[in-house]
Design a protein around this nucleic acid. Sequence first.
DNA 1: ACAAGCCCGAGTAAAATAGTCAACTATTAA
DNA 2: TTAATAGTTGACTATTTTACTCGGGCTTGT
Lengths: 160, 160
Amino acid sequence: MRLTTKGRYAVTAMLDLALHYDDGPITLADISQRQGISLSYLEQLFSRLRKRGLVDSTRGPGGGYRLSRNAHEIAVADVITAVDEKVETTRCGGLANCQDDQQCLTHELWSELSQQIYDFLCGISLGNLVERQGVQEVAARQRGQASSVSLSSRTTEESL
Amino acid sequence: MRLTTKGRYAVTAMLDLALHYDDGPITLADISQRQGISLSYLEQLFSRLRKRGLVDSTRGPGGGYRLSRNAHEIAVADVITAVDEKVETTRCGGLANCQDDQQCLTHELWSELSQQIYDFLCGISLGNLVERQGVQEVAARQRGQASSVSLSSRTTEESL
DNA sequence: ACAAGCCCGAGTAAAATAGTCAACTATTAA
DNA sequence: TTAATAGTTGACTATTTTACTCGGGCTTGT
Ligand code: FES
Ligand code: FES
């Protein structure tokens, strides 16, 4: 499979959006601070999330991003595939041709594994996650800390 | 997770070993030809497989590798972890510390996913795979083709 | 002795990752 | 109308990882 920080960050950011859905549009700067993800990197990620229709954006002051639909209707798999291309563990990428244009010995195995992973990630929505106690606890902690550590050159200006 | 060609090749090679278990020790050169994997690369992989006790080796002419135990007692997960280090999808590697020494929002999710994948790969043994029709078919094809394409400088000598 | 085959570690080219940066456009508040 | 906010885009880069190669050893059967 291809599960990298890009996908992980995307899910984290989307979950942040889900948690603060009632606060109106959320700026990337907010997410950056709360989740410890570089603003520039978030811009890149949200560009793809928007193209896939997972989030809506509002420009100008007071603007930001919000989920395009109910958190229960966005699966983790949707988010990952939006930024990560595919959740595929085969070498051939689905076409069974990795050994001399024919199927290799283990194609079937990886194919099943991919399906397994995909099913799992489809079965969990952002809404599910929001309801979990573990997630709630972390979210509460994040509210308490305000802006402790600054991280990007571009976010450091607004100290106080 | 970290599923890369290294892990895939290892499983393929081990499966080859399982399929030819009755032929006595199998040389890496044989595997290289049948499965289209570079000999030098196989040496690297088998070094780790041997250290983990998954295969036994015999040196000298007529030597080669064989499975150290019954194919039904070697899970795919064993092979992958032998060469690939870990089947972990978390960023923190298990310790929940990826955001400022504390657990990030999505730690739980990746943790569960990792477990899911691990369970799946533990549930499938090399023995299981050998019994599958799809695998049998590919194996039969490989016997028919003899040595079609040569690949590595080090394997090219013995054409005919 | 010689060759087959395993054993080992260092080295490396290419690709992927994880980001950065600068310049732009749209929107709104003053 | 002007300035500030915030999204939008695309190109660019350092670092890391991957997927190998290479050269030399060591063992053992004939
Ligand atoms: S993984 Fe699909 S053919 Fe090898
Ligand atoms: S993935 Fe474990 S703390 Fe973030």
